[in-house]
Each structure stands twice: as structure tokens, then as C-alpha cells.
């Protein structure tokens, strides 16, 4: 091939010319078209809307609006609740997935079903269910009061505790499924190998199991964080005004006020936050990797 002689500058062209690359592009075409039509174009138009004033002129005041006053505090609330949700759904999801991954297939499927069921219950029924569970006169508080726990009944609904309980429950199917998959993928014999060398359970968990499922943990945490950023029904059900989420504001603006520009700006901010979350995880994981490299 003549291009080979040309050396470094010809590389991109050589790459394109190779049969494999061409076929690769062909394969990628539908996906690219799909992404363009369903994501890139709409997102671009949303971007455009968010910087357009009512009369069509360019403006940033929708962003200024979104980043001041109540809107800003709602933004922080959203971030905080998303982070809390990610944390709790990660921890609980880990414990659940771990337990389920040790079950036999049938009980495992059953347990999975129980985890997923809340998703198929209508918001209305769920609302009532949570009141029965967590209300002042609810099961949990009655139990605690019955046990003589000081301070009972606790306020478990219509505050941040309630919201995090609710969003975590909604998120669990995702984290459990994801972590379950990762855990099933872990070669249990590696744990046996560690045991054969004399490692106790705790050491095996910390030094072998945890590092092996760590990528799954990062993904699950990120997923729940991103998903929670967009939640608003559950926070509305389980929380108070202090737990208003940004998606709720977007909904209000579009549905109630027919105010699309402001909603677009907030949507863009939400999107940027999502990217920031992605970036953060990437950064943290590559930092960890670098640290490891330099250590060994």
C-alpha cells in the first residue's frame, strides 16, 4: 500500500481506507442516525430555546432565573436528594443483591420480583401504602412505640427522610439488578482461592470481592444519582416543599404556565449536572487507578 510509505500524516486516511473501518462505519450508521434524530437534534433545539427570549432575541436570563432565588435552592435540594438516594440505594442495593446472588434461582427470582414490584404500583396506591407504613400512626411508628423506643413516633413522611425512603425504594430495582448482574459475574472460585490461602471472610470481602464489584458499584451509584436528578413524583409524594425537585419546577412551568424557555434552561442545567456526574465518576476511578499504578 502506497499510503504506508507516507508515514504518520497518512494515518487517518489509512484508517478510513481499511476495510474494517469502513464496515465499522456502516454498522454504526443506524445508531448514529438514531442518536442524531432522537437526541442530538432535540437537545440542540432545547439549547436554542433556553437562550431565546419571548420575542426571539438571544438572552441568558432564563439561566439567571434558574440559578437564583428559590430555583437555585431547589437545584441544590435536587443535588442533595439525588446524592442521598444514590448513597442509600447503593448500600441497600448492595446488601440485597449480595443476598439474592447467594439464593437459588427460584427464590432469587422471587426476591427480585419483590424488589421490582413497587414500580408497577400506581402512585396513588403507593402514597397510601407509605402512609400506612411510615405515618405517625403507621406500622413502623406503632412498632417503635410498642417497643418503647424513645422519641417515637418519628416523623418519617413529608420530610427528607420520607423522600429518601421513597426514592431509594424506587431506585432499588435498578441498583439491585445492576449489582446482581455484576455479582453473578464475579468468579466465586476467586473467593475460594483466597480462602485456600488463608483469607478470612472479612479479608476476602474487602480485598477480593469489593474490588471485583467496584466497577458495578460506581455504575450503579452514578445511575441512581442521574435517575434521581430527574425524579419528582416520589419526592412530591413523600416530601414537603423543602424537597421540591428541579423536575417538578420544569413540569410546573410547562404544564401550568406554558413557559417553555425557562423549562428548557432548567432542562439543560439538569443535563449538564448529569454530565458532571459522569465526569466525576470517571475522574475518581481514573484517579484511583493512577494511585494504584504509582503504588506498585
Amino acid at each position: 500500500m502506497a499510503a504506508t510509505l507516507a508515514g504518520v500524516p497518512a494515518r487517518p486516511r489509512r484508517l478510513l481506507a481499511s476495510r474494517r473501518t469502513r464496515i465499522g462505519i456502516l454498522y454504526a450508521l443506524p445508531a448514529v442516525a438514531y442518536l442524531l434524530a432522537l437526541f442530538v437534534y432535540p437537545i440542540f433545539s432545547t439549547l436554542l430555546l433556553s437562550v431565546q427570549d419571548l420575542d426571539g432575541s438571544l438572552t441568558l436570563h432564563w439561566y439567571a432565573d434558574a440559578l437564583t432565588g428559590v430555583n437555585l435552592s431547589v437545584l441544590f435540594t435536587t443535588l442533595r436528594i439525588a446524592a442521598e438516594t444514590a448513597l442509600f440505594s447503593l448500600v441497600i442495593g448492595f446488601l440485597l443483591a449480595n443476598a439474592i446472588s447467594r439464593l437459588r434461582p427460584l427464590p432469587a427470582a422471587l426476591a427480585m420480583l419483590i424488589v421490582v414490584v413497587p414500580h408497577f404500583i400506581s402512585a396513588l396506591v403507593r402514597t397510601y401504602g407509605w402512609i400506612i407504613m411510615l405515618g405517625d400512626k403507621g406500622l413502623v411508628n406503632q412498632l417503635l412505640a410498642g417497643l418503647g423506643v424513645p422519641g417515637a413516633p418519628y416523623q418519617l413522611l413529608y420530610n427528607e427522610i420520607g423522600v429518601v425512603i421513597g426514592t431509594t425504594a424506587m431506585m432499588l430495582p435498578y441498583t439491585v439488578l445492576l449489582l446482581y448482574g455484576v455479582m453473578r459475574g464475579v468468579d466465586r472460585r476467586l473467593l475460594a482461592a483466597a480462602a485456600s490461602m488463608g483469607a478470612g471472610r472479612l479479608v476476602i470481602f474487602r480485598r477480593v470481592y469489593l474490588p471485583l464489584v467496584a466497577p458495578g458499584l460506581a455504575t450503579a451509584g452514578l445511575l441512581s444519582f442521574i435517575l434521581a436528578l430527574g425524579y419528582y413524583i416520589t419526592p412530591a409524594l413523600m416530601g414537603g416543599p423543602n424537597q421540591t425537585m428541579i423536575a417538578s419546577l420544569i413540569n410546573q412551568q410547562v404544564m401550568k404556565q406554558n413557559q417553555w424557555n425557562g423549562a428548557a434552561a432548567e432542562g439543560v442545567i439538569l443535563l449538564l449536572l448529569t454530565f458532571a456526574g459522569l465526569l466525576l465518576v470517571k475522574l475518581v476511578s481514573s484517579l484511583g487507578e493512577a494511585k494504584k499504578r504509582s503504588a506498585s
Binding site: 476467586l190 482461592a193 480462602a195 485456600s196 490461602m197 478470612g200 477480593v208 474490588p211 471485583l212 506498585s296
Partner: peptide, 25 residues
């Protein structure tokens, strides 16, 4: 006795090296 208390060495057919550790580790 639990395996970790037997003080035996075990070499598996599938090697079972820890993928997240270096050879040295």
C-alpha cells in the same frame, strides 16, 4: 475446618489469579 484454617495451598485448573491485582500483589 473452614478452608482458610487448613493452611493448605491450592492451585486451580483455571489459575484463578485475582484480576484486580498485579502479579506481584
Amino acid at each position: 475446618l473452614a478452608p482458610q484454617k487448613r493452611n493448605l495451598g491450592f492451585v486451580f485448573q483455571q489459575y484463578l489469579l485475582f484480576p484486580h491485582m498485579t502479579v506481584g500483589e
